[in-house]
């Protein structure tokens, strides 16, 4: 699915990622954990193509394509999805019309007709119910005035709607209460498949109890310092990162 090789990334002239290499095969679930400021969001944003993150050297192969040459739009249309740690508010644009627009953009890319209003409403009801999101939220402006947890649910909803091949979740669990965390884990577990890969970035590890990842990587100073299976997560939980 994705092969990251010797990646060096800087933000505003500060080098953040240090020769990072990581391969995620199709169907695998990887968790990345590490202290605050270790560069976890930097990986996520670099893969999604945030122009603030400057790739100094290295390569990223995404389904046999050079990911680093692609615009953010193209990365998304090719199946990469980043659930933001800090989702952005868009005033003046209703959540429902926004969700329909992004879905239709993906459908167009796949050669499908735009989804009609009635069909979309049905789909939205179905997907919102999984997360216990009231339909009323979709008539509000995108993320505007949403609580922290509601914003995160809206990210999970978009992830579910767009049916991506590679999901990167950046601290989706922070801001969620226990019930919402469980609902999110259910959606993720439902989406888990042989055809899809996930990179779950977290420093809380709670989510990993519900979603048992295949691999856990510990991140520090822009590097992976240790990798293991999901038992590594419980060890860190007890002993910390040191």
């Amino acid at each position: 699915m994705i092969e990251i090789k010797n990646l060096n990334v800087s933000v505003e002239e500060n080098k953040i990622l240090n020769n990072l290499s990581l391969t995620v095969k199709t169907g695998e679930v990887h968790a990345i954990t590490g202290p605050n400021g270790s560069g976890k969001s930097t990986i996520a944003h670099t893969l999604a193509g945030n122009p603030n993150y400057i790739v100094e050297s290295g390569s990223v192969n995404f389904n046999n394509k050079n990911l680093l040459e692609m615009e953010p739009t193209e990365r998304s249309l090719e199946g990469l999805f980043l659930a933001f740690q800090y989702p952005i508010e868009i005033p003046g644009v209703s959540n429902a019309s926004y969700l329909r627009q992004i879905l239709n953009s993906h459908r167009k890319h796949q050669g499908l007709e735009p989804i009609d209003a009635a069909e979309f409403l049905k789909l939205l009801k179905e997907k919102s119910a999984l997360l216990k999101m009231p339909m009323e939220m979709h008539s509000r402006f995108v993320n505007s005035g949403f609580s922290g947890g509601e914003k995160k649910k809206n990210e999970v909803l978009q992830m579910d709607l767009l049916n991506p091949k590679l999901i990167i979740m950046d601290e989706t669990d922070s801001g969620l209460d226990v019930d919402a965390l469980k609902l999110t884990a259910d959606v993720v577990n439902q989406m888990r498949s042989e055809k899809r890969s996930l990179i779950i970035v977290t420093h809380y590890l709670r989510l990993l109890e519900y979603i048992k990842p295949d691999y856990v990587h510990i991140f520090q100073n822009g590097q992976i310092i240790e990798s293991g299976d999901h038992t590594l997560a419980s060890r860190i939980d007890k002993e910390g990162y040191e």
């Binding site: 193509g49 945030n50 603030n52 615009e71 990365r75 933001f84 952005i88 992004i102 953009s105 767009l162």
Partner: peptide, 10 residues
């Protein structure tokens, strides 16, 4: 960036 990362054009 948020909007384009969801697959709509610039």
């Amino acid at each position: 960036f948020y909007l384009t990362s969801r697959g709509i054009s610039k």
